[in-house]
Design a binder for these strands. Structure first.
Lengths: 324, 324
DNA sequence: TACATTGAAAAAAACGTTTAACTAGCCTCT
DNA sequence: AGAGGCTAGTTAAACGTTTTTTTCAATGTA
């Protein structure tokens, strides 16, 4: 790999001048500038990132900390993040914490050690890992907002409302809720958006909380079987919805004929299960892209106040809800 | 962040000595060694990776270059790679080329610039991108072997054979082949493993080649509808199988009642479609893990000959094949 | 006693950049 | 003509490590 020194030697000029040219500093003549640029191109010069990092304290790499890549929610996000980052010349360093707080913590330590300039983080619990504090770099939360952090996510309230509106349209008023974990803001808002949209007209027959990974607790399974009076089951996300549908099918309850189900997220699975899932689509790619842009702003400069960027969601109607 | 200098000052010893302690060099007294270690722990010292990188020319980071994270085949692989890498103290830098050769090339340039110590690569085409040559770091291919490269992948031949054996068991002898692209070794071996297992007893009624992304060409669709005499369709991977099943369903051909279908890979989707897919499971996590281990060996030392590590596969029987 | 050998530690150089401080030459202004 | 200011450069220091070389004292040997 050619170094700045090689360039300097080749052009017959000092390394400082070469550096100045490469960084677009003004104090260098047009002729020399040209020569340096030409030589750089000719030798295929690429700055040594480690050396730059050492001098400037910036690595032009960012961390992406996710709970679980095999959860079909994340790949699209990761892809969007990587691609926009790369377009900005940023390298993405991946941490998959496997849903564990220790993995998350270890990952952040590793990122800190490598001196990433910022991190995009989808937190797994509700605590703030110690390494994040000492990291002292901008952080943008993704999908899961928290007070005091910059975040980009979907308008969960709106999603809940759209679902409520659609439920009424399709003639459903007796609702069963398979909500996500109550300690996740995103789960709470999905639920509240739905429940508070038409409190008079929608009747919540029952509610059970399960994890976003979709595994059904004993309570959830029992409730589903009893099923009480609900004609529509509103799940906290697609994973939950899909598991519920499968569980019901095993017990000879057909969706949507016997009971309707909605999801949330429009993960890839929603399109391929049967019945295909009526759900709320988030603009995942846009979220990933925006998160990188936001992070880059923060990395570049001034301390921007920590607000959340919220994206509209849309209802995608498929076959898991019956008009009654 | 505490530096080696801080440690030196605190203990009252030179930086060289601190470095020697930290690197386990022998030429330092037991007393001093203890004191340095204690101080390091106390100050929470972490080596500055960029500085180390500059001096040693190693970054303790590796690249992971994938064609498409949203292809459900890759997340598990990526997760396994990240986790084992992290356990070895290696940071994983992700490149998602979106299936394009330019993205792949750009990504490799970015990785080279950051000086990753090696890369795990699932190549998208059959050419070798220029940046890979100049990178001059160990490379381990994953899932898609090529002559002259170290690689870790499944025993595709075996998968094809298992499928052939199972087909006969279930009474199928007239086969339709929806093979993967012929320029991919892995696709060829899947196909050949099947076709050559029982050439006398299995009769290939038709064969069409499609991409591993599963989108059905016009020819594939036409052939599926005519369907000729085949009772079993052997798809090159799960994506193809699932698309075929959906396409057939749209045209009122029921799987497995009217025709049976097998996949390959056992991606997450295979479990949730209906009918659930009978397919070949690859040990994805093991492959990812092994790839990292192999890479690390190569990064550490001697030029090991470039051979392929091959994992056994298993047949997972679900409901997409009917016994006739 | 003189001299080589060893062990423990320090000093200094090096990695590839950036940047602050400096300099030489030229121009402009009194 | 001399002071001051630009312009276009150069020199040198710095970033945090590792590593080579050097120093120094203690020990062993003849």
């Amino acid at each position: 790999m050619a170094t700045i020194k090689d360039l300097a030697a080749k052009v017959g000029v000092s390394v400082a001048t070469v550096s100045n040219v490469l960084n677009g500093k003004p104090n260098v003549g047009a002729a020399v500038r040209q020569k340096v640029l030409r030589a750089a191109k000719q030798l295929g010069y690429r700055p040594h990132r480690a050396a730059q990092a050492m001098r400037k304290g910036r690595t032009r790499a960012i961390g992406l900390v996710l709970p679980d890549l095999t959860n079909p929610f994340f790949p699209q996000l990761a892809q969007a993040v990587e691609n926009t980052a790369r377009n900005l010349g940023l390298l993405v360093c991946l941490i998959d914490s496997q849903g564990g707080a220790v993995g998350e913590s270890d990952g952040l330590i590793l990122l800190a050690q490598h001196g990433v300039d910022g991190v995009i983080w989808c937190p797994v619990g509700q605590h703030v890992p110690a390494p994040l504090r000492t990291l002292d770099r901008p952080v943008v939360l993704i999908d899961r907002p928290r007070p005091g952090f910059a975040a980009v996510h979907s308008n969960y309230l709106m999603g809940g409302q759209l679902l409520a509106q659609y439920a009424l349209q399709q003639g459903h008023t007796r609702i069963g809720l398979l909500s996500g974990p109550s300690d996740l803001e995103s789960a709470r808002q999905r639920r509240n958006g739905f429940v508070r949209a038409f409190p008079k007209r929608l009747d919540v027959a029952w509610e059970v909380r399960v994890g976003f990974d979709g595994v059904l607790t004993r309570e959830a399974r029992d409730t589903l079987l009893r099923r009480q009076r609900a004609t529509l089951i509103v799940a906290g996300n697609d994973l939950i919805a899909i598991n519920a549908i499968h569980f019901l099918a095993e017990h000879h309850v057909q969706v949507p004929d016997d009971v309707s189900v909605t999801g949330f997220d429009d993960i890839s699975w929603a399109r391929i299960v049967s019945p295909r899932l009526t759900t709320i689509a988030q603009p995942l790619a846009a979220i990933g892209t925006r998160a990188v842009e936001l992070l880059q702003e923060r990395m570049a400069g001034a301390a921007i106040p920590s607000r959340a960027t919220v994206f509209d969601v849309t209802l995608v109607e498929r076959e898991s809800v019956k008009n009654i």
